[in-house]
Nucleic acid binder design. Sequence first.
RNA 1: GGAGCGGUAGUUCAGCCCGGUCAGAACGCCGGCCUGUCAAGCCGGAGGUCGCGGGUUCAAAUCCCGUCCGCUCCGCCA
Length: 613
Amino acid sequence: MLEFLGEFRRTHYCGELREEHEGQRVRLAGWVDTVRNHGGVVFIDLRDRSGIVQVVVEELKTPEAYEIADRVKPEFVVAVEGVVRRRPEGTENPKLPTGFVEVVADRVLVLNEAKQPLPFQVEDEISVGEETRLRYRYLDLRRRPMLEKLLTRHKTYQVVRNFLTDEGFIEVETPLLTKSTPEGARDFVVPSRLHPGKFYALPQSPQLFKQILMVAGVDRYFQIAKCLRDEDLRADRQPEFTQIDFEMSFVGRKEVMEVAENLVKEVFKKVLGVELNEPFPVMAYDEVYSKYGTDKPDLRIREDKVSPLIDLTEVFKDTQFKVFRSVVDKGGVIKAVVARGAAKELSRQKIDELTKFVQKLGAKGLAWIRVDEDKLTSPITKFFSEEEVKALLERTEAKPGDVIFFQADADSELVHKVLDALRRRLADELKAREEGYRFLWVVDFPLVEWDEEEERFVSVHHPFTMPREEDLPKIDEALKTEDLEERKKVLSTVRSLAYDLVLNGHEVGGGSIRIHRPDLQKKIFKLLDIGEVEAQEKFGFLLEALQYGAPPHGGFAFGLDRLLALMTGSESIRDVIAFPKTQKGICPLTGAPDYLDPKQLKEVHCKVEEPEQ
RNA sequence: GGAGCGGUAGUUCAGCCCGGUCAGAACGCCGGCCUGUCAAGCCGGAGGUCGCGGGUUCAAAUCCCGUCCGCUCCGCCA
């Protein structure tokens, strides 16, 4: 009973039919959304990309069509022909944009069936495990909310291309098969058939190519580029993801940030209809980090409900409280977060939960003080001197109803990590987040940081990042001294011309002014303990390019998936990617990754070594 | 690499703590009835290796160990 399409051509999309089409003969094609058979009359909600319209088939008037319509099931692919009519009075459905009309069909073609039962019901709101949705992604994407996300993504591409084109940028594609570079993330690799034992790497980003395009005089480049990183996944991280990547010559960070900011404003306006009128605030990394304990704070958190971090190290520098004493002696920090007016909501039990929460992050405990009208309730105040209590209340501006949480540790990074997580947790529990989009520029990142594991300095951004000009002498100074501690001290004050764009607690983009002189680039490699030979081998092509007249340049890249996830209110970036992978990097739809045929392996000169048990 | 939560019918979940009429619900599916529904309704029915492997026990969905998978987080990664 299946029919081929033959000469049948649709005249309209389902979702566009309105009262103005009344009386018109139309042909439609799509999927059966739902069927309601009343015996003698059957209603088919027909769905295509544009929406849904009700099709009616009556047994008495069109017995042949009725017979076919009678056996139609959800997700069958059907074509219908009939006349648009206004629905009988009282049967209109205001929930549907097409709800005032219906198509009285006299012809129904079943073009394809859908196996029953379906893996899940194709409805706007579903509660189905994500793995099942990914395995049958084609069904998942039939759902309106998912289609909307694809559309938002599409519109964003268009706005980005138009905006950057108008700004004088030209779109250039860079290779996917390229060279493995050390630093940064682990590479995905591709064995070479023509060159036994050699491998391509898939790009972590088009970084080096876009710099070389600047050397080539392209002046302004952009690309909507796939990037690949073989690292562990998160809700906001996929092994392959998309960047809006751009680079410009003869500019400083101000101009790059301006383009990025204007671009994001244009996207929000044109895609979401949201006007972001205020300039995005700019903060230095040091300030952001000490105030929020992270380099990507969520500015939606109301600071009158969950305070930023308050440094109390000074208050307790002479304390007799052993726990704090030892932290101070070891050069650690004592910081606090105040949950303002939350005393009632934060029961002892809640605080116990919070304690467990921070302990999982590595905290030794969670000291707290509840401020009541006339007294302080706390397991630790008894160890404090009167002056300490007074200074503490002053510094924290604590008022009755507030609860103060402390973190003290010799490891200041741990203190910040824990208090950042605690702030976000408190914001959840106390519903202390405002609605909306809160952007933040973070600038003046440190150029390098000491990596304990590798026992060397590593770039905070990447090795091609330009230091601030005024910090250049410090790099020479650092390179001169052999004393590691001295070197760490000097380098900790060297800032880079890197910048991150943060939205609602997520890093949605970042960039930097790059090094355009080979002498300085070599110096940085030396600082990063990348030997002359290795530098030549891995980055020789860039160093060479820099020798032939590289212009000063800099650029930026948006994490498009993250941006879209935030724009569409998605919990994870998987929702804005058509075919994403699971946390273990598996594609449930195709089954990738998979074993290779031995013949294929041989062709690329590879042998598989079973992992040790 | 580590921590937490989860894995029972096509789907979502209950049962697990306290082992033994605990293999259940809803939706979906299948069959029938029904001419105005749009979460259609009514009647009837089918459907489960309880993720997998091992152990304890007279007896395991239930307790123990291991393992795989999914999600969230730390490490890692901009």
